[in-house]
Design a protein around this nucleic acid. Structure first.
Lengths: 346, 346
DNA sequence: GAGTGGAGGGAGAGCGCTCTATACGGTGTC
DNA sequence: GACACCGTATAGAGCGCTCTCCCTCCACTC
C-alpha cells in the first residue's frame, strides 16, 4: 500500500458533500436524495474507497467477526497447537463444521477466525481475543467432554454457542443431535436385516454422545429380543475401530452385525472383518455413524446414521448471530434428528 | 457484556498515572520505572483491562490478523461456498496447511481468518476485506492453476504469499516443492525394487505440479531403461484414482509398479488392485505422494513421497509476516525437497 | 402569510488508543 | 552556578468512522 488509503473525508470532498452524507450512503441508512446518492457512489468508485473497519468498529463496538474455536481439554501445553490442529482435521467432521459455518457467514460477508484451544494458555488467549473485541462471539466445538472453555466463556458473559450439550450445565446455547435416536435407528436396521448376534463398537464412554448412542442401540436391541449386546470401546479413530473389532471377534466369533459409533471406526471394523475373512455385509452387517465423506469412499460404501453436521453448524452460527445482536438473551438449544442412510454394508 | 469494558483511562486513574504510561507498560516499550510498572500492572489486573484492538488498529494501521484463503478458479457462483469448503477439507492436505500456519501464528498470538474464494464475487470479497484493513495480508492456497486471485492481489499491492508457483508469473512470494525430484524418488524406488512394467496415475495435467511429478518420474524411468511409461490421468480424488488404475490395467495387465500423484489416488489404486486379485506390494508395488494421514491409515500403509506441507505452510506465514512488517519488499520463493517414506506398498 | 412537519444534509463530539512533542527533575561537566 | 543532557512522565493531537443533534428547505395547512 504505497499511498494513503482514501477516507470518508476524501470521498466527501470529491462528491462535494459532508462526511456524514457519505457515511449514510455507504451504510444505506436514512433518506438520501437519489441524485446525491448517485453522486457519492461515483465518488466512491473514483477514489476506490473502502471503509476502514477499525475506525468503524471503534465506534460501533462490533468487530463483525466471530471466532470458530476447536477446543480440547488439556491443562498444560502437552500437545503443540500444530499437532492438535492436524489431529482435529484428520476427522472429516471438522471440515463439515467449517463448511456449515461458512455457509451461514458468507452471505453476510463475514469470515470466521480459526482458533485452537488445547492448553490453559490457549483458552486464556481465546478469552482475551474476545474481550479485546476482535471477535463478537465464539462458536465452540469441544473435542473433549470436560472442556473448561464453555464455563469460562459463560462466566465472562461472552456470546458463545456450543456444538453438543456441555457435560456440566452451562448457561450457553448449543446445538446437538438426538444421539439416542441415532443408536435406535442403527439397531432397527440390524434387526430388520435379521441379525442374530449384534455387537457394537462404542465411542469413548466419557463422551455423552457415545453413551447416548450406545443406550439407544441397547434399548432397541433389548426390545428386539437381545438383552445383552457385546460392547467394545473405541476412541473414534480408525485404529481404535480395528482394535475394538478384534476384541469383539475374539470373544464373539459368531457376530453378524456391528454398529460402530462413527464412520472412521466403522471403516476399521470393515477392514478387520475382511482381513479375518468375513464378507461385509453377507457375513457381518456394519453400520457407521455421521455419514461423513468416509462413508462414501469406504469399500463397500457404508450404511450409516447421518448427522447433519453442516446444518447444525449453520444453526450454531445463526444462534450466535442472534445473541450478538441482542435478539436473543436466554440460552437455548436446538436438537437435530439423525437419519439412516442405507448403502451397502447393512 | 453488561458493563462498559475498562479503558486505558480507567487503568491510568486507578494507577495514578497518565494514559501514555499505561500504554507503554502494556506494550512493553521504553523505560518505565519498575515501581510504576508494577503499580500499573496491578491496576490492570484489578480492572481486568484488555486493550481495545479496534482503537489500536486505527492508529497503528495494523490488524495483526492474516487471511488464509483457499481459492478456486470459478467465474460465477456455480458452486456454493459451502460445497467448496466441504470439498476442500475432504483432502487432508488442507488440514496440514492450517496446522502449519497455526504453528507459526500461535506463538505470536495471531489467528487466521478463513476465507474461501471460488467465485468472482468471493475474490472481490477477499480484496475488500484486505483493503478495509481487516487483515494485513493473505496466504493463498489455490486449488486451480489459473486462479485469478494472485494477479488481483498483486495488482492491489496487498501483501500475499502463495502456496505453489502461480502459472502466469506474478510478483508475489511463494513456497513450493521440487515436484520433479519427487517424481524421481518414486521412480528410483520402483527401479530398485526391480519393477519391469512401471506405470503412473498422474494428477490433472493442467496443474503444473502434476506435470512436474510426471516429468521427473518419466525422466528417471527413461534413464533406467523404460523409455515408455503408461500414464493415466486422475483428478487427485479417490474415485479418479480407481478409474485411472482400471484403465491402466485394461491396457497393461502385466503392470508391476505404480506411482500415483497423491495418496488419495494411491489408495484408490490399491483398492482396485486388490479387487482385481493383485497383491500389493507382492504383485504390484504402489507409491503415493504427499505422505498425508491417508498414507498411514491405508491398508497396507503406503510408501509415499513426503511433501512437508506443515513446514511449507509455516514458511508461507513467515514470509508474509516479513512482507507485512516491511522487512522484505521483493518477492521471493522457497522450494522444499521431497523425501521418500518407505512403508509397505513399495 | 405565518405555522407546521418532515425530509435531507451538515457540524462536531467522541470511540480508545498510540505517539510525538514537551515538561520536569536529577546528574554530570566545566 | 549555569548549562547540557539523559531518563522518565505527561499533555494532547489525531487515527477514520458513526451518530446525535440541529439547521435548512420546501410542501402543505388553515
Amino acid at each position: 500500500m504505497s499511498r494513503q488509503a482514501p477516507t470518508l473525508e476524501d470521498v466527501a470532498r470529491e462528491a462535494g458533500v459532508s462526511r456524514a452524507t457519505v457515511s449514510r450512503v455507504v451504510n444505506g441508512v436514512r433518506n438520501v436524495d437519489p441524485a446525491i446518492q448517485e453522486q457519492v457512489q461515483r465518488a466512491i468508485e473514483r477514489t476506490g474507497y473502502a471503509p476502514n473497519r477499525a475506525a468503524r468498529s471503534l465506534v460501533t463496538r462490533r468487530a463483525e467477526t466471530i471466532a470458530l474455536v476447536v477446543s480440547g481439554a488439556g491443562g498444560g501445553p502437552e500437545e503443540s497447537q500444530e499437532a492438535f490442529a492436524a489431529r482435529v482435521f484428520a476427522d472429516p467432521f471438522f471440515g463439515r463444521v467449517v463448511a456449515g459455518v461458512v455457509g451461514f457467514l458468507r452471505p453476510r460477508s463475514m469470515h470466521p477466525v480459526l482458533m485452537f484451544a488445547e492448553s490453559a494458555d490457549d483458552r486464556h488467549e481465546v478469552l482475551t481475543y474476545l474481550r479485546q473485541g476482535r471477535a463478537d462471539g465464539a462458536l465452540v466445538v469441544s473435542t473433549h467432554p470436560d472442556d473448561p472453555l464453555p464455563t469460562l466463556l459463560a462466566a465472562a458473559h461472552l456470546p458463545s454457542v456450543l456444538f453438543a450439550r456441555p457435560t456440566p450445565p452451562v448457561p450457553l446455547s448449543y446445538v446437538d443431535l438426538d444421539h439416542r435416536d441415532g443408536g435406535r435407528l442403527a439397531a432397527q436396521r440390524l434387526l430388520e436385516r435379521g441379525c442374530r448376534r449384534p455387537a457394537t463398537v462404542a465411542g469413548p464412554l466419557a463422551v455423552p454422545a457415545s453413551q447416548e448412542r450406545l443406550a439407544g442401540f441397547r434399548d432397541t436391541m433389548a426390545r428386539g429380543g437381545h438383552p445383552y449386546v457385546p460392547v467394545a470401546e473405541g476412541g473414534f479413530t480408525l485404529d481404535s475401530g480395528i482394535a475394538a473389532m478384534a476384541r469383539l471377534l475374539a470373544e464373539h466369533p459368531d457376530v453378524d452385525g456391528v454398529f460402530a459409533a462413527n464412520d472412521l471406526m466403522a471403516q476399521g471394523v470393515c477392514q478387520l472383518l475382511r482381513e479375518r475373512g468375513r464378507r461385509v455385509p453377507d457375513d457381518v452387517a456394519v453400520i457407521g455413524f455421521d455419514d461423513s465423506g468416509i462413508a462414501l469412499s469406504c469399500r463397500p460404501p457404508l450404511t450409516t446414521v447421518r448427522q447433519p453436521v453442516e446444518q447444525m453448524a449453520a444453526e450454531m452460527a445463526r444462534l450466535l448471530d442472534q445473541h450478538i445482536r441482542g435478539e436473543r438473551t436466554e440460552a437455548t438449544s436446538v436438537v437435530f434428528d439423525p437419519e439412516l442412510v442405507v448403502r451397502e454394508t447393512a
